[in-house]
Every structure is written in C-alpha cells, then in structure tokens.
Design a protein around this nucleic acid. Structure first.
Lengths: 346, 346
DNA sequence: CTGAAAGCGCTTACAG
DNA sequence: CTGAAAGCGCTTACAG
C-alpha cells in the first residue's frame, strides 16, 4: 500500500499525464469518464493523497489563519470560547486555525516582541485574528506586514473609549451594563453601586453604561473604584468594606466582572449579608468559573463564540475583498437571570 | 517598501545569485562577509520575508502539528489546559499547532468521520495529537495514514482498563483516587463512599484506586453507581439521597469528578448537612469551574498542562526517531487540600 | 566563496 | 479530452 507517493507515480501507473491526474484530483470537467474512473480507482486503492504544501505553493493561499492570543491565558474560559467560535467558522469554510500565543507590552518595539514564527514568516497564513488584550503597536505591525487582520475590539487598548472603527469585532460593553442597571431599577432598586477598576478601558465602558442608565433615571451614582489589586476576585473582596462604609444603604451591586462579583459574594457571605435578600448582585461576562457559585449569579453574558465567529467572518471577507471592510455593529450582550437578584425589600 | 517579493528580486538587487541569497537567509557559513552584509541590508530595508510554504515544500517538513480535540468542547477548561501545554512545547521548539475539532463515534467507519481537511491531506502536518475522548478506530486510521500520532491515553476507550502502551501519554488515574482515600483515612474516616458512573473507563479506574485503598485497610466499600444521568453535576445531585439511604453513616465522599462533587455539595447544602463538619468531600480533576465553590473543594488535580506538554514531546521525539518510542510512565496527580475535608468527628 | 541547474509536488495555460 | 512544459518560491548538491 501507499506505493503511489506523487502525481507522477499515479500518472505512470494509469498511463496518463500528470496533468490528467491533477484534473481528476480537482474534479475538472474535461476528463473522459473512462480515464477518470481508471485514475480514481488507482488513487483509491493506493490511498494516494496529494501533497497539500505543493498545492498551496501554486495557489498562493494557505487556507490557514492564525488565532493569536495576546497577553492572556487560553485557560481563561472567555478566550477559549472566542477560539471555539473562530474554529467553528473555519471548519465549515474548510480553513484551518493555527493557535498561537504571545506576550508583549504597549511600549515594546516590534522587533523585541517574540511573535510566533508563523507570523514573521511569509505565506503560511492568509490572515490573523488578534485575540486577547492588544495594543496599537501590534496592529501597526500587521499593517506594515500587509497581513490581513481582525482584532477583538473591546480589548484593544488605544487610550480612548471608542471602539476601533476598522479591522475589529466588538460587543456592546456599555449596553450590557445599561441593561443590567435597568433591570435592577425595575426590581425597585435605587441605591445601586458599581464596583470596579476604572483604569482599564473595558471596565470604564461598563461603568459608562451604568452611569448613563443611572443618570437617565436621576439616580445617584455610587462608585467604588479600586486599582492595583492582585486580581479581580480580590478586588471584589477588598471593595466590599469600602462600599458598605461609603454607601451603607446600597441594595444592589453591579460588579465589573464575574470574578469581582465572586469576591463580593464571598465577603457578603462572611458578613452574613444575604444575596439576594439583602443585596442583589450582578456580574459581567458569564464565565465558566461561576457555574457552581451559590447563589447562581445573574450576569451579563458576553457572546464569546459569536465574537470569534464574527472575527473569522470579517477576516475572510476582507481577505477576499482585498480592502478594508466596514466593521460590523457591536454584538449585543444578554442579561442572564439567575438567583442573585431580588425585588428590593422595603 | 516591500518591493522585493522573492529571492530572485533580492538576488537581482544585490547582484548575486539566488543561491547566495538563500545561503544568507539560512546563515550558511560559506558566504563572504561583504556579500552577506550587502544582502542582509537589502533584506532588512525591503522587509523581504521568504515564503514559508516554498521552504516547507523543499524540506518535506511542515513544522506544524495538529491538536485534534475529539468529541469534546474546548470550552471545557480541562482540554484548554492540555492545549496550552502542547502550545507551550511547540512555541519553544519553534513549531506550530493547528487547532481542530471532530466528533465521531466508536462504530463510525473511517470514511464517514468528518476529519478536518488538514488530516486527510498529506504534508500539511508532521504529526497529530489526539486529545479529548477517542476510540480505537481513529488510531487505526492514523496508522493507515502513516501519520505519527500521540493520544491522550486516559480517554481512549478500548474496553480495557489498561492504559495504551504505545503512542500515548497518561496520568495516573488510580493513583489519584488512592491518594485521596489514604488522606481521608488519615483524617480518621472509615465510612468512605465513592460516587460515580462505572460505565466510563476513566471513572472505573478512579473507583479502582478507591477500592484498592479501602481494601488495603480492610474497610467496607460504599459504592453509589449511577448511569445515564444527563451530566455529571446532576449525577452528584441524584446520587446523594441514594447514598444517604444506603450508607447513612458515611463521613466522607470521593466523587468521580469535580462536577459530581458540586452536585453533591448542592444537595448537602439543601439538606443542611455541613461540609466538611458533617461530611468530608473530595472531587477529582481540579477544573476551573470549582474556583468559586463554597467551601473550596479539596480535589485531585490532574496535571493537564503537563499532559499536553508530554504529548507534544513524545510526538516530536517519535517523528524524529521514525519509530515508536516506549510510552512515558503515567504522570502523577496531586491532591490539592482546600476546605472540604475535616478530621472525622466522633 | 559563488552560480547554474535540478528538484520539492503540485497546477494551469497553451497546443493539439 | 489530453499532454508537454512552465511555473509557484525556495534549497542544495555539484562544479568551479
């Protein structure tokens, strides 16, 4: 078996030219039924498989894109969901996704960033998905390379709150927070606090959604803004005493993300403050890690798979169009109702 | 810029042959300092990047392996950690990992399995990592293809409890359960129950570890064996009343996995049975989803990244050696002590 | 140290 | 419908 290694072997065995073998392989119509069948039989019984690399060389297309996860850990379920969305898209469009990671900083100059070889190389990928957290210097580099790319817009740190207007897929960060606040207001809450780190652009956007929703109902803002915490859960833990001191009448809290919500939850439990009876709590992201939290956490679900899917879609469309497409509108979030919110008790 | 697209362009611009350009590119020693510098200058200022596909064609090596996740969801943190381990290995060895997924069943014949194109093709990958849950038919196929592969041995369903002896990386499933039981015994527990689904080989191995550890101390087995539950958490939930009825004196439970432990935990909480004061509980896997569980769950941590790393390592060594290497010994698990176990109360 | 040429394994006009 | 030949963009003996 596996005696026929190249189109030449097959051609020789079939008594035809390599051109004909190639035509059969590519289902070109201009092959007589007889030859086609003879060649196919040979291919089937020998298990011959054409070399994909050679094919790519002549086509000038690799059929591969790179999913580059910057400054993040794939183990974080958020990012693996985005990857899943991208892979789903690629699978159905017969493309491949190369998974790679990189770590770099805003002020790293390009040569010092240890980009995976596949990106510095030429020709092995048709385009790149910039996932994770990114800075403008990497985008600039992609443009220098002339490599088509699409970025996860929410986590591109540009110093501005606006979403990038090109090469990007975003979800509606403000909108999610806005909806959560409206929901709490409908439950009768008036003293609603926001807990988070305004240093990061994405949390600032969430805060904006909170702020606007509160203002539109003329409610007073209660902000606990902490920075430099070791992690988001710890942020929630440390924010709680501050919040209770500064805004003792708070009946509901919107946390910057699920991790912070879990930190708050732990603190509340230790103080004997019941959720949702005494205080309602809403997270943000709907990550896998909150799956078994008690009580089940009401949260703003980010459409992670959809983000990955839309990124791949935009990338392939811009590869095909060979110019920059307008970005799609921000993807909507979804408020997932579980058991951490209740009607305010009077 | 980017005016020089091929080695020919560079050669012409530098007034040398393409062979010389290639030598410079590959840091071949036989190039005079002067020519090297001239060519390098041209390459640098033009931003010329050699075509990786052409390179691969002549080398007959793709520098890529495929991480194929079978019958599982990457979103499950277990598998993304294995992927991370594999990617870590590949990054430091200058290889690339193509991420793909597939779903198939034990009795699917090969042609009906929708394997990603990259695998059916020839030449685009040097080898494959079979992650997720697999059946022997896929391994057989890899052998037919002559494609070097390494499989995640614990989740290969062969009908036997023995680990596969070739092409596989495993972790010590029995050992982990054994250690957990020994730990509980040291805490004074005697009535230790095992809750799980003996239908699945990997849980049977865990049960084996439990059984042997109990027997070696002449303790009585308390088994709650449930099958056909919709998911593992539900299994834990439904197992609890059965366990309490059949083995009312139980003081400690070893769950088949963390999800089942969470189901048990929920049930115990609802019944007002305290963990760990009334009953000690141990999970298995140490998945991300138990991160915020109350009380923090003592569990058997599976070395997921190490599994991925070792799989990649074995794969590259067997690609290089061109014959089958002996499998490494099963990787040890680690008992992670948190707050769900206590000394038995008399 | 350097270059001309063959070759990696395909595909695709171009002729016939 | 079929084949001879050129070409995709590199690398690597082989000669010099």
């Amino acid at each position: 078996m596996r005696t026929l290694k190249t189109v030449h072997d097959v051609a020789r065995a079939a008594g035809v030219s390599v051109a004909t073998v190639s035509r059969v392989l590519n289902q070109h119509p201009n092959v007589s039924r007889k030859t086609r069948e003879r060649v196919m039989a040979l291919i089937d019984e020998s298990g011959f498989r054409p070399n994909a690399i050679a094919r790519r060389l002549v086509h000038g297309r690799s059929g591969q894109i790179c999913f580059l996860l910057s400054n993040r850990d794939i183990v974080h379920s958020f990012h693996s969901r985005v990857l899943k969305g991208a892979e789903d898209y690629c699978r159905q469009s017969h493309n491949q996704v190369v998974f790679a990671t990189v770590g770099y900083r805003l002020d790293d100059d390009l040569p010092s960033i240890e980009l995976p070889r596949i990106i510095r190389e030429h020709g092995s990928i048709d385009g790149i998905l910039l996932a994770g957290t990114n800075y403008p210097n990497l985008c600039r580099y992609m443009e220098e390379l002339g490599l088509p790319y699409v970025i996860f817009g929410n986590n591109l740190l540009t110093g501005s709150l606006a979403y990038p207007r090109k090469h990007a897929v975003c979800f509606d960060e403000q909108g999610g927070a806005h909806e959560a606040v409206r929901f709490l207001i409908e439950l009768g809450h008036r003293r609603i606090a926001w807990v988070g780190n305004l240093t990061k652009a994405w949390y600032r956007r969430r805060y904006e959604g909170y702020r606007v929703a509160m203002k539109s109902k003329r409610l007073t803002l209660s902000l606990v803004d902490l920075k430099d915490e070791p992690n988001d859960e710890e942020l929630g833990r440390r924010a709680l005493p501050i919040l209770l001191r500064r805004f003792p009448k708070t009946t509901a809290i919107l946390a910057q993300d699920d991790e912070a919500a879990c930190g708050l939850l732990e603190g509340l439990r230790k103080l004997g403050i019941r959720v949702p009876e005494d205080i309602s709590l809403v997270g943000y992201d709907d990550i896998a890690e909150i799956r078994y939290v008690t009580p089940p956490l009401t949260t703003v679900r980010v459409p992670k798979e959809k983000v990955g899917w839309a990124m791949a879609d935009l990338l392939f469309r811009s590869i095909a169009a060979e110019d920059v497409l307008p970005d799609p509108v921000p993807l909507p979030t979804e408020l997932v109702l579980r058991d951490s919110c209740a009607r305010v008790s009077r």
